[in-house]
Amino acid sequence: MLSVRGVHVTFNPGTALAVEALRGVDLDVPAGQFVTVIGTNGAGKSTLLSMVAGDVRPDRGRVAVDGKDLTLLPARARAGVIGRVFQDPRIGTCASLSVEENLALAASRGRRRNLRNALGGSRRRAFLAEQLERLGLGLQDRITSPVGTLSGGQRQAVSLLMATLLPMKVLILDEHTAALDPGAAAQVLALSAEINKEQALTTLMVTHSMRQALDYGDRTIMMTAGRIALDVAGEERRRYEVGTLMELFKRNTGEPVEDDQLVLS
């Protein structure tokens, strides 16, 4: 269970460039729920995710997972409970390291790294190969290739696997398919939904596509000017069309949808 309480975030506070990115966000996500997050550029969706992940510290408010307060912990100290996949496939993985070395990094997450061989014995290697096989991309045959030689979609699938390799609680997906071609995007999205179900992960996914926001997950929130303007789930959400969302968007912001990307794709 992820709990965000009264969170305010201001960038460049006290200067002419001060931006209030989050202005009082409350969000409770029960364990295993898959929430899609939409909103225009600057609405605060990425800030919300960065704040949960620990890259951005709130001025006010708290963030907790399963009752454990994480507000003051840096990103690396939260990595044991929170896994992330970034928008840019190059950020989630290390290009010069092989596929298995990248996975080995993820396999040591959340504990002190020592002087044991990172790739470990045959058992660890077998486990990593087996995990790769789950992706269904044939990557188990390229286990020693540098990740930089994989396609964007394959790298993003590896990122997703790395984020969820060890038992953890919250999965953060920050427009993780925006840089992929449509085919690869669909594959990675399906994989994300599958992992969310299989491991009962609390999932937050930011997307630029209203279609994706409604097609995936159990609940959709819409952010406007640093606040949650719409929060819809269950039966009501199933009746929603992209048009409904756009209508609500207009009513909430008082302006029509200008961002083509929100509607298209």
Binding site: R84, F86, I91, A95, S96, L105, S108, G110, A163
Partner: peptide, 10 residues
Amino acid sequence: ENPVMASAQS
């Protein structure tokens, strides 16, 4: 090589 990824892996 990639400090952002590194901190995401604790």
